[in-house]
Nucleic acid binder design. Structure first.
Length: 339
DNA sequence: AAAACGTGGGC
DNA sequence: TGCCCAAGTTT
């Protein structure tokens, strides 16, 4: 059984020394509270996303839209393009909904309680707890994948994920206190990210190894146990890259729901369980240039890439493919090997 | 409540 | 190559 007070002291002391400097943070013990807008934006970007991947997006978003008011005024298309490549595009759609809700219903000020935050689109239990703790220093049980892993190791929890989630959340809740809730949440997550890593944890540098049952047993990376995920099926389709001869590409706006919803995209066939010959959406001298592979969350995709020169009023003509999701960027690059 | 929803990096 | 993993939410 962990002695909570000494455990908390060890981890908070470690955080005071080792906290990562990140652009959405203020240093521990500085007496400064971070901007709730930046905390919220970073938390949404970091959902299922690594810090290195999210970082340039955070910097660009806060440069272009430094406050929630400025984000509210942005065009949907601008924001979706700026999010391109980050994935989980419902996050970008909900980002705008939340910004507009904060402006319209909360006078431009973020709710400062977990319950209030939880009502915002795209803000679930984790993000509400994280923003309440980090931005407003409210005691909240902030449980993400890092915290689940840390707690699973501390207690050598034998229940596999995802079934173990309630148990792990309860165990994490036993460590929360009224003292420095924001630093506590970030200390636990930093520990998970830098020391108590999924593979090859650095237990020799861990400030709480003395409390850790998995460390005592000698096989910390056995935890957390997980159920094996189902294999991803493969789907096949065709994409068409139409060029106008002046460097522009024919794009279309995808429907607002579902996969890549609301994003710009290339015209594509349906994606089916087996390769089939697909009818081009536009008459042109199409030639095959190869295939691209892409992995989505729940399936692999093999796309046959066709290209031609031509024009069509039904398409959106853009010189810049930077606003496209990665899967389409791959197809565009294949037709443009010189860049 | 299981399934949908992206991407890139590591091994 | 393929599987796992990363600061989850929505339906």
């Amino acid at each position: 059984m962990i002695k909570v007070a000494p455990f908390r002291r060890r981890l908070l002391d470690w955080y005071d020394r080792e906290a990562r400097a990140l652009p959405w943070r203020t240093p521990p013990r500085s007496g400064m509270r971070p901007d709730p807008y930046r905390v919220w934006l970073s938390e949404v970007m970091l959902q299922q996303t690594t810090v290195p991947h999210a970082m340039p997006y955070f910097l660009e978003f806060t440069r272009r839209w430094p406050t929630v008011e400025t984000l509210t005024a942005a065009e949907d298309a601008e924001v979706m393009s700026a999010w391109a490549g980050l994935g989980y595009y419902a996050r970008a759609r909900n980002l705008l909904k939340t910004a507009r809700a904060v402006a319209a219903d909360h006078g431009g000020v973020f709710p400062d309680t977990e319950d209030g935050l939880l009502r915002l689109p795209g803000v679930g239990p984790y993000t509400a707890a994280a923003v309440a703790a980090i931005a407003f220093d409210r005691p909240a049980n902030v449980v993400d994948g890092n915290v689940e892993r840390v707690v699973a190791r501390l207690h050598a929890v034998e229940t596999p994920l995802p079934g173990a989630k309630p148990e792990l959340k309860h165990l994490a809740g036993g460590l929360v206190a009224a003292d420095r809730p924001g630093d506590w949440a970030q200390a636990l997550m930093d520990l998970g990210a830098t020391i108590c890593r999924p593979r090859a944890p650095l237990c020799d540098r861990c400030p709480v190894a003395v409390d850790c049952e998995a460390f005592r047993q000698g096989e910390p990376d056995r935890y957390p146990l997980r159920l094996r995920k189902a294999a991803r099926p493969r789907r096949y389709g065709t994409v068409w890259v139409l060029r106008d001869g002046q460097g522009r590409i024919g794009l279309m706006r995808r429907p607002p729901q579902g996969l890549l919803g609301g994003m710009l995209g290339l015209p594509t066939s349906e994606w089916l369980d087996a390769p089939v010959e697909a009818e081009p959406p536009i008459a042109a001298a199409w030639r095959a240039v190869g295939e691209v592979e892409h992995v989505f969350t729940h399936f692999h995709l093999t796309l046959r890439v066709m290209t031609a020169e031509g024009l069509a009023d039904s398409l959106i003509w853009d010189e810049d493919a930077a606003g496209l999701p990665s899967v389409f960027l791959k197809a565009v690059r294949l037709t443009r090997p010189e860049r």
